[in-house]
């Protein structure tokens, strides 16, 4: 949902107003960076990616026909940037988003290792352990609050695919967090 003031900002930015472009950058920077961070799990890489994406977005702002879709459009550009990085990583032996969907958890850090840590750290770790394709739909739905249709537009897939992927991502996430949930509900 875009506010009237943001719409006005966007129109001025599209007309070439540099101050409006700067304000738009500030307004969306954090959301764009967090999305890149969740997908890449590397803060430096996420910063570079988000910055590149924002620069590209501002440069092609005139091509945005539907101002209401600004957030989805920005996230789509970030996603493309992330894909480019993951493709480069794949050449160096790292899998991209869509590969090995049957392997559900990446097993980076066993959750037991952070069980004694902070609650948010446990959730973060469980999220990071998800396959990127699953992590992405969780982030878009829970953090960015996008609808299934918007997620489908960002991820270039169908609504039913989003529905299914989100359901499976939640199942896997809950599977990881269930011991923690039980511990919390009994204490």
């Amino acid at each position: 949902m875009i506010t009237p003031s943001e719409l006005d900002l966007l129109k001025r930015a599209q007309a070439g107003d540099e101050r409006a472009q700067g304000a738009l950058y500030d307004l969306h920077w954090r959301s764009v960076y967090l999305y890149a961070l969740r997908l890449l799990v590397d803060s430096d890489l996420a910063k570079d990616t988000a910055q590149n994406a924002m620069v590209k977005a501002l440069a092609s702002l005139k091509t945005l026909d539907h101002p209401k879709a600004l957030r989805s459009w920005l996230l789509m550009i970030v996603r493309n940037e992330v894909f480019t990085i993951l493709r480069t990583k794949r050449r160096n032996g790292v899998e991209p988003l869509e590969q090995h969907m049957d392997v559900l958890v990446e097993n980076r850090t066993p959750l037991e290792d952070v069980m004694n840590g902070e609650r948010s750290e446990i959730i973060r770790q469980a999220l990071e352990n998800l396959k990127p394709a699953f992590r992405e739909v969780i982030v878009l739905r829970e953090y960015e609050q996008l609808s299934y249709r918007e997620i489908a537009a960002v991820t270039d897939s169908t609504e039913s695919a989003v529905k299914s992927r989100l359901f499976h991502a939640r199942k896997v996430l809950l599977e990881q967090l269930r011991p923690f949930f039980r511990e919390r509900s009994t204490s």
């Binding site: 954090r30 960076y33 967090l34 609650r119 948010s120 959730i123 973060r124 999220l127 969780i138 829970e142 953090y143 939640r170 996430l173 809950l174 967090l177 269930r178 949930f181 919390r184 509900s185």
Partner: peptide, 24 residues
């Protein structure tokens, strides 16, 4: 039980989101 867990997960994710935003 699945419904309860899902609602709990949502609340935890929101809390983590706020914590991350605060840290940033």
């Amino acid at each position: 039980s699945f419904m309860r867990e899902l609602l709990w997960l949502r609340a935890e994710l929101m809390s983590e989101k706020e914590k991350t935003a605060f840290d940033l």
